[in-house]
Write a protein that binds this DNA or RNA. Structure first.
Lengths: 205, 205
DNA sequence: TTAAAAATATGAATGTTATTCATATTTGCT
DNA sequence: AGCAAATATGAATAACATTCATATTTTTAA
């Protein structure tokens, strides 16, 4: 098995190797962002990284493995950002507000996160499944920890609802190129009131 | 311009042509959903449809155009199912309840809808963008028509929230292979109460 | 019914891409 | 320095999307 990580990536053993590999990863990320995964060729990546095609295959088994690596990177990044964003929150309400804002801001800055995560469906369904399973599990646990602040009976369904809201409003933020002010307004004035009072007329105002 | 539709598809003018084109469409749909877009080759499609490669290009400009046609078909199918599901509803509350149930049931029966719609991100971002733009516009208009039954100020954001909820709970229904009874229970006992009263403890019970 | 015109069918040819491989160069170690 | 391991290289391979010149079938209209 040599030096393989779990991600189809073979780690370099010299400084030169590390430099080359990072140049390849950066080039791939930049090109996936601007041109998309499938219209980026390996030779595009290698040209931008000043590297021969063969070198690419020293570090990555396939083009998909670069993708897999990116997905793993995004998962870590999002979890860290979310943890950081709610670290000073006192209530579950505040945590939801800050978590949702954080996710939407991240989506706007990193729109390729949708390409990578949702695009995994066309590459390996297990990647997609594992990603959302891991995410919904964390979210469900967090909601259960705050059970006394919530009036819900099925935390897992609520976790999926909240993930859906963040993801789809994040999508809209990208479509409409919102700025941070607009995100704050939408979360504070529409999403949080809806989560507090519901959306129907007979609810508390 | 000849005989092109808006979808990169050139319609046949004879019965033979229509038969061939439909065979190609059916073959493509089966292969895209089972193997995915990128691992399905034109020659795979043509083999399954008993057709020469060149014939494919009489009816479709590119492989992506077949995909575009499939997305358009799903879009129509979902919109028709939704319209049908709410046709006897009196209130917006009932419409949301039935619409959400309908979508989740459809997702469960047709899990490939996620592969096709979300997978479009890795094929042509415009496909994805157009799909959700069209959907959110319809949803927003519907919400505005029921404005007096809702306590919302930003219908478009709420439309995205509701799409997010349906899509993500639909995803969970697939992950956990729910049956129709479980879908009803989740919608009736968790989603609709959350949409009526919110999810936080201080809300109306 | 029939022949010309239009539509459709065909698969070999073209250019591009992901991946492999034999060979050359560089690095780390003693 | 000198040797082995690691890394670099780009031409070669195979598979693919798309094109095209040619053959066959269908429609049109006399």
């Amino acid at each position: 098995m040599d030096n393989y990580t779990a991600k189809g990536i073979k780690l370099p053993k010299t400084k030169l190797g590390l430099v080359k590999m990072n140049k390849l990863l950066d080039a791939a990320e930049e090109l996936f962002t601007s041109k998309g995964f499938h219209s980026t060729s390996i030779s595009d990546i290698c040209k931008r990284a000043d590297t021969a095609v063969g070198t690419f295959y020293i570090y990555f088994d396939t083009k998909t493995d670069v993708y897999r690596y990116l997905m793993w990177k995004y998962e870590r990044m999002i979890k860290e950002l979310l943890a950081e964003s709610i670290k000073n929150c006192k209530t579950r309400y505040e945590m939801e507000r800050e978590g949702i804002k954080c996710f939407i801001r991240f989506a706007l800055q990193t729109p390729t996160v949708y390409n990578v995560i949702w695009g995994s469906l066309s590459i390996d369904q297990n990647l997609f499944f594992d990603y959302y399973n891991s995410f919904s599990e964390s979210y469900t646990k967090a909601l259960k920890r705050s059970e006394d602040e919530l009036c819900i009976t099925d935390a897992k369904t609520v976790a999926y609802m909240l993930m859906g809201i963040s993801n789809f409003v994040g999508l809209r933020a990208i479509f409409e190129q919102m700025d941070d002010g607009e995100i704050d307004r939408i979360v504070d004035e529409t999403i949080m009131p809806a989560l507090s009072n519901g959306i129907f007329e007979n609810c508390e105002k």
